[in-house]
Design a protein around this nucleic acid. Sequence first.
DNA 1: AGACAACTGTTAGCACTACTAACGTAGAGG
DNA 2: CCTCTACGTTAGTAGTGCTAACAGTTGTCT
Lengths: 122, 122
Amino acid sequence: MLRLVRREERDSDISPPRLSALSVLVFGGPASLADLAGAEEVKAPTMSRIVEGLVKDGLANREPDPANRRKVRIAATEEGRRRLEGGRERRVRALRERLRRLADSEQRALARGAEVLERALR
Amino acid sequence: MLRLVRREERDSDISPPRLSALSVLVFGGPASLADLAGAEEVKAPTMSRIVEGLVKDGLANREPDPANRRKVRIAATEEGRRRLEGGRERRVRALRERLRRLADSEQRALARGAEVLERALR
DNA sequence: AGACAACTGTTAGCACTACTAACGTAGAGG
DNA sequence: CCTCTACGTTAGTAGTGCTAACAGTTGTCT
């Protein structure tokens, strides 16, 4: 798993933690820092810095929550949305290439295993 | 995957890269720096520091290769062997707890999926 | 043999991610 | 009103990854 993550990191222009946080924002909508930290199972200071990086790169923005001025509302920018989607397409294509070489029965075995894993790890 | 790795990291007293390198030494025997770096798909300077950490914690030792004095021979210590095994047992126990709750057919599905994955990712 | 190239590992310096501790500000409850 | 809690940031530390630059060793080729 570690090797896979590192490989992923090498040919992506967004680091895995940033990519993961960004995807939470894109698919889940704007969130507070605590929300994001919880979703990524990371402490607040860590997420604060990840968001800082996203903002610096123009992939997300931070604005105070009008209802509760302690909170910040973090949202993906259009650019962030595009970059996430672009990378996703590349990854899906690469994965498809690999899976295409497997027999149908093997593909089904992977699909079934993935389902079980998803339930088991939650 | 990232979340899983982080969870792993929190309740282990050895960091994932060190643990992974250590396991290469324990199961594969002594190795040169380049061997280790290759096995972990990491550059030499990175592995040099990981080994430094292992040595500092008494989990591995470094000695010059008598045949080729440019090389170093890195080997796990007894302590390293013990710590790896101990952690492994804890992880296996935790995993077994989770898997025990699955139906037999689900367990088989996971096993089959894992086989396919191993071949597909290589 | 002597010069030069290639190999092996380390050091230095950068970016990033993780943590805890400590802080400032904003809201909630007595 | 005053305190207590919640929310986020900043400071400081450890660890991991990279490239570039270096030192020592070995091999090669004249």
